[in-house]
Design a protein around this nucleic acid. Sequence first.
DNA 1: ACGGAATTAGGAATAATTCCTATCTAGGAG
DNA 2: CTCCTAGATAGGAATTATTCCTAATTCCGT
Lengths: 156, 156
Amino acid sequence: MLLQDVLKELRKAGIRLTPQRQEVLQALFDGLQGECQPQSAEEILQVVRKRYPGVSPDTVYRTLGTFKKLGLVREVNFRDGCRRFELALQGGHHHHLVCLRCGRSRELPFCPADCLVRVQEYCPDFEIEDHAFTVFGYCPKCREESRDVFRETVEV
Amino acid sequence: MLLQDVLKELRKAGIRLTPQRQEVLQALFDGLQGECQPQSAEEILQVVRKRYPGVSPDTVYRTLGTFKKLGLVREVNFRDGCRRFELALQGGHHHHLVCLRCGRSRELPFCPADCLVRVQEYCPDFEIEDHAFTVFGYCPKCREESRDVFRETVEV
DNA sequence: ACGGAATTAGGAATAATTCCTATCTAGGAG
DNA sequence: CTCCTAGATAGGAATTATTCCTAATTCCGT
């Protein structure tokens, strides 16, 4: 799905298409390129401000909230002190493998769908809205680096 | 496992047992009773201050960090603006079903263990430290209440 | 082009978390 | 039991993320 299609859907949903919202959306699309890396509100704000310097944090947060309600954006938590956001396009459902040292993440193409089914059986009256499966640890690069630091410490 | 056993283990691990740390531990144990409800640092602080009024937030955070490193405490995120903590006793591994309205959680006895195996196969050089499986939505009680609100709105 | 409801900027307020440093203390050594 | 010191704490300030408030602006249907 492309930016144009999303804009069309938003218009259809009666969402006012302000330039600020379009820029937030653009930033989210940019984040989709290359390695998957959900962005913090602050990061998105910086991107948006390149074109609209006056944009306020409030606007970014409000826009992300609006998009989240529409199911267009998902929130994830990487345990790095802020919320992160990414596009939730249909067919792109995934989870994350997060490095606790460098904060970078890798997309996981697995989903514990069977668990979700069991959860719904376990609590039939609970209305499931979203779920998170996130694996935390240390990426190969950071493991290597901390090994180096350890060596230096010992040798000195 | 009881508080006494944990204290013994901490001593064995060379962790200084200050009264503040013991109170934090006690608060975490209290949180284990009844419905599982991971606590925020603020909530733990309030409990600890009942006995030690002068305790600082810093101490609670530092203590929780120490316990986390030891694997005694797990951090969870309920999307309510703060980190939450709970004891991670052996055999008690579980996940959470969280209501986005009232913030209460229910313990899930399922774990996507098979997914973890697949993750490790997918990224053999990644050192897995922890994982989170959390289901978000609306509990029966909150669904009922929002239905009431809707009715009122319509009828007036 | 016009009007009204929705949206925004800007700045202040709030809340969570961490930092700093002088002081204190747990627990091992004697 | 007392002494010593590495490690821990209090207290308050600083930082960071997020939300609130309100007057001014703007999208978009008519």
